[in-house]
């Protein structure tokens, strides 16, 4: 802190790059190193953990994208869990009825979007407390899916992995990254798309302006309500896709309350990722890894009660949240309804 009064000294681009990305780079290299080392020791288990990490992280990164679209335009979305659950259920129902997986995914996405619309209506138009609004969605989703779900409904298949030619034969990352079902590929693309839209388009600039200072944005002619509505609805659609991932890609069937807190873990992922899509992706991979390890530990012959292994992801969420929320910059207007003058 001594040097704060001095003029900034010239730094080379390389130094600047290292200062900004050094830690990330070191961590990524560390992870790659450890993975290759483990691969030498036990190829099969390592490939299983890497593939499982990607699989477990997919609903989390989608949930986090849903959350951050809302938050960037200042709408807190606690209802991700419910949007996911209802999307998962409707996708499952359509699959049971029609057997058409494409229609099923579409229905899940639309359901998520409708729930997003409901949240936007409650928080933007009715100016309800956004956390209570999200809780309403969660409880509503739990009730509706519980009532309409009947045990014994049989699905007609699930989305199958599509290997991307020779890429799928690369050791370690081949099976994990280039041999996935469609929603996982779509997730990779969505992270990039949301990042691009948020930081390199007019729409993204307006969204962030509305999240930081809605009054100023309004003065400049930005329609605050429209920006918030569209972002929250798009977010809901992405949460619906996460639901479709659960029923149509990962599990292949529906269970009551099958989201199991993923919508809330996604919020921690979003905060840990500093409200950026790429950061959220990294954070989701960390959480996915915790889940993957958990599965491996349950197979391994270790004398730890399964309940203690089962609570690892939840404890990790609490630790991450307590350690990082104070150091993350939250959009300034987050959670505050906008009143037009």
């Amino acid at each position: 802190m001594k040097n704060t009064n001095q003029l900034p000294t010239e730094v080379s681009p390389l130094q600047r790059f290292l200062k900004r990305w050094g830690w990330t780079l070191a961590m990524v290299l560390g992870v790659i190193g450890i993975t290759i080392w483990q691969y030498q020791l036990n190829a099969q288990a390592t490939e299983a953990v890497v593939a499982s990490t990607i699989r477990q992280s997919t609903p989390l990164v989608l949930g986090a994208l849903c959350g951050l679209l809302g938050e960037r335009s200042a709408v807190i979305n606690i209802g991700i869990e419910g949007q996911m659950l209802l999307g998962a259920f409707v996708g499952f129902l359509v699959n049971v009825w029609t057997g058409n997986l494409f229609l099923a995914v579409l229905a899940a996405v639309l359901t998520g979007a409708v729930m997003g619309l409901l949240l936007a209506y409650m928080s933007v138009t009715l100016k309800m407390d956004q956390i209570i609004g999200g809780t309403v969605i969660n409880i509503l989703a739990l009730g509706l899916t519980g009532y309409f779900y009947q045990v014994g409904m049989v699905t007609q298949g699930k989305l199958q992995p599509i290997p991307l030619g020779p890429l799928a034969n690369i050791p370690i990352i081949g099976p994990a990254i280039f041999n996935n079902p469609p929603i996982t590929y779509a997730t990779f693309v969505l992270v990039i798309v949301v990042h691009y839209v948020l930081f390199y388009t007019k729409w993204g600039l307006r969204t962030r302006a509305v999240g930081e200072h809605p009054r100023a944005a309004d003065t400049l002619g930005v329609d605050v309500f429209k920006i918030r509505y569209v972002n929250v609805i798009m977010g809901g659609a992405i949460a619906g896709l996460a639901g479709a991932f659960l029923t149509l890609e990962a599990v292949g069937s529906f269970e009551r309350a099958m989201t199991n807190g993923r919508g809330f873990v996604a919020l921690a992922v979003m905060i840990f990722g500093k409200f950026t899509p790429l950061g959220a992706w990294g954070a989701a991979l960390l959480f996915g890894f915790a889940n993957a390890i958990q599965t491996q530990l349950q197979f391994a012959d270790i004398q730890i009660p399964h309940q203690f292994i089962g609570m690892l992801p939840y404890l990790l969420t609490i630790i991450v949240l307590s350690g990082f929320v104070g150091r993350t910059r939250v959009p300034a207007a987050d959670g505050v309804p906008y009143e037009k003058e």
Binding site: N260, F264, A268, F308, M311, L315, I318, L321, S322, V325
Partner: peptide, 22 residues
Amino acid sequence: TGAHEVITTIMLNYVAINITDY
């Protein structure tokens, strides 16, 4: 720490289920 109680309490619900089950 400022960790929001909505998320921490929900996570602790899952932890509680596991501990009481154990």
